[in-house]
């Protein structure tokens, strides 16, 4: 089962601070989305609205065509996992999983058992006694085993060590291939997960900077390296996101279609064209004063 998400002119405010400013987008069901943004860009606020953790101040949110806030038919389809978790510290791991199994209609117990084994979760330990990594592992176990049609991980796996994180990415992809559902992953570990994303949304200062298919976004970024003088001449008319110079060699990161003509000109002038990793694009786009326009 997959559900689409429609967000229209949504604004979230905390007192006088606007965390999310008139954001609109449409997410088709059954895809893996990456939600990227710097600290304080409004990611968690936006996800909180999707998960009915708070109502939006303005605008409209629809999940599967219905408003989610206090709508049991929708909230039961959404699982929201944050790094710090929402389970009481007094619960044991077993109690937490029991509660998740009780509340979540699509809970898959055998799958949960397998993930418990994979991440080595100690069932009898209290949540307060778990390390940061283990708390994250509990969160991702709940998120994956929930089999919720909309599963949101808000930096849920940051505390895990590298092998556990890669095990999580593998599990997520495998599970997604077997039972497609909508995943939204908010993260700062962009390079690690960028291959999972089918579409990427970048938030900056509460606004939606861009929403593109990951491949398309990668194609929109290009690095051009060569002699500084030639690069300075070549960059005219390009949307340059960043520049780096070492001696007489200069490298620029440009955003936008280069076009076949300009690409052949670059090659003719001996300039080196290369792809830009998603993380670099993100860094350049969200640098204060950066713009995707």
């Amino acid at each position: 089962m997959t559900l689409s998400i429609e967000v229209k002119d949504v604004t979230v405010r905390y007192g006088k601070t606007t965390a999310v400013d008139r954001i609109s987008f449409h997410l088709e069901g059954g895809k893996i989305y990456g939600l990227l943004g710097r600290n304080g860009s409004g990611k968690t606020s936006l996800l909180s609205v999707l998960a009915s953790f708070q109502p939006q101040a303005e605008g409209e949110v629809r999940i599967g065509g219905e408003a989610p806030f206090e709508n049991a038919a929708v909230t039961s389809q959404v699982c929201f996992i944050q790094e710090n978790g929402h389970l009481s510290d007094g619960y044991s791991v077993k109690d937490g999983l029991k509660l998740a199994a009780l509340c979540m209609p699509y809970w898959d117990s055998p799958y949960a058992d397998r993930l418990i084994e994979l991440f080595g979760l100690p069932l009898k330990k209290r949540i307060s006694e778990l390390s940061r990594g283990m708390k994250s592992a509990l969160g991702v176990t709940i998120g994956l085993a929930s089999r919720a049609p909309v599963t949101i991980f808000d930096e849920a796996y940051l505390g895990m060590d590298a092998p556990s994180r890669y095990a999580f990415y593998e599990e997520l992809l495998k599970d997604y291939m077997e039972q497609p559902r909508t995943f939204i992953l908010s993260t700062h570990l962009i390079e690690e997960v960028s291959n999972l994303f089918e579409e990427v949304l970048i938030l900056d200062q509460g606004k939606l900077l861009l929403h593109k298919e990951t491949e398309l976004l990668r194609e929109h970024g290009v690095s051009v390296t060569g002699p500084a003088a030639k690069i300075d001449e070549f960059k005219l008319g390009l949307n340059v996101l960043g520049e780096q110079q070492l001696g007489g060699i200069k490298s620029i990161t440009a955003y936008g279609e280069l076009g076949p003509e300009r690409a052949s000109r670059a090659r003719a002038e001996g300039l080196e064209l290369g792809p830009v990793p998603l993380q670099d694009l993100f860094v350049h786009l969200t640098k204060r004063g950066g713009s995707a326009s």
């Binding site: 049991a72 909230t75 039961s76 389970l87 009481s88 509340c103 979540m104 209609p105």
Partner: peptide, 13 residues
């Protein structure tokens, strides 16, 4: 203690 756990698992207020 409990509200956040239940809401994160899809229970309404």
């Amino acid at each position: 203690i409990s509200l956040a756990s239940y809401v994160s698992f899809g229970i309404t207020r």
